[in-house]
């Protein structure tokens, strides 16, 4: 006797389908009872296929959502605290700490995460927050750069993001940024892997639907770095891109690669107008 796996899969789908409702929810994200976040807003003009942009927060269960609403509950803040210790620690041949030049990050870093990645005219390249931090470490501190998306680097990224929470994402996509943005857009719509999936296949055409048991979001990165319940640590956007492309069964790009820098700019620009949430909490 033989039967088709497809039939079994269809039967499973019929059972699980009833357990889940689709789409984003209508809850409101207020941080620490103080900062009301913009988690849904009109899509920026450059987006052709989506009218409303929605934070990934709306695609999570009430329990996961609650973890992000209070800094004491948000375990991502543990890593922000660890980064604060690094911020205040002198390193490298110059014997300087971040604090020596930048003081309190609550003042000096406010708004930074909202505008990055950003074209750096002096360096002649598109820079992410992590690249900017490493430039500072090498040039001003005489310290070793951190490996892209390594724990220390992502924690610092989150510390910097945390001081822009509530500010709208506003990355520039014109001028010198344009070629990077175009490259990122091309990657976004390219189908990768044996499964032949592009970013758009899941996050533009199917957000709100389920892929197996995963509730697909729009793939916004306004909440990065994000604390994932899955691995109980902060995760950078490049690592998330890598995971997604790997799931299409493709050879993936590396964290910190030109491809992912371009993709970060493009995906971030799809969230222009949403509040910065990093460190957010996701599943």
């Amino acid at each position: 006797m033989k039967f088709k796996a497809l039939t079994a899969a269809a039967a499973l789908l019929a059972v699980s389908g009833t357990a889940f409702a689709g789409g984003p929810d209508d809850d409101t994200l207020v941080l620490n009872g103080e900062i009301e976040m913009v988690t849904k807003t009109a899509a920026p003009e450059h987006m052709e296929n989506i009218d409303e942009i929605i934070s990934g927060w709306h695609f999570r269960t009430d329990e996961t959502q609650a973890l992000q609403m209070d800094d004491f509950e948000n375990q991502g803040m543990i890593f922000v605290d660890q980064a604060m210790e690094v911020w205040n620690t002198a390193e490298g041949s110059e014997g300087k700490s971040c604090a020596d030049c930048h003081g309190d990050p609550a003042d000096s870093m406010a708004g930074v995460a909202a505008s990055y990645p950003k074209f750096d005219a002096d360096a002649g390249e598109m820079q992410t927050v992590q690249m900017q931090v490493n430039d500072c470490r090498e040039e001003n501190m005489g310290a070793e750069p951190w490996k892209y998306d390594s724990g220390t680097a992502v924690n610092m990224d989150a510390l910097i993001a945390s001081h822009s929470r509530g500010m709208p994402v506003n990355v520039a996509i014109d001028g010198d940024a344009a070629p990077y943005w175009e490259k990122g857009k091309e990657i976004y719509y390219t189908r990768y892997g044996i499964l032949e999936l592009s970013c758009a296949s899941c996050h533009e055409q199917n957000y709100g639907n389920y892929i197996r048991a995963d509730h697909l979001s729009q793939g916004q990165i306004n909440g990065f770095p994000t604390y994932r319940l899955k691995n109980a640590k902060l995760n950078g956007s490049h690592s998330r891109f890598k995971g997604c492309i790997r799931d299409t069964r493709a050879e993936t790009f590396s964290a910190g690669s030109d491809e992912f820098i371009a993709l970060e700019l493009y995906v971030k620009s799809r969230g222009n107008g949403l509040s910065i949430e990093g460190p957010s909490v996701r599943n």
Binding site: D214, R246, D247
Partner: peptide
């Protein structure tokens, strides 16, 4: 408690 197993390994 139903524990979901995601399709995306991350």
């Amino acid at each position: 408690v139903k524990v979901t197993i995601g399709g995306c390994g991350g």
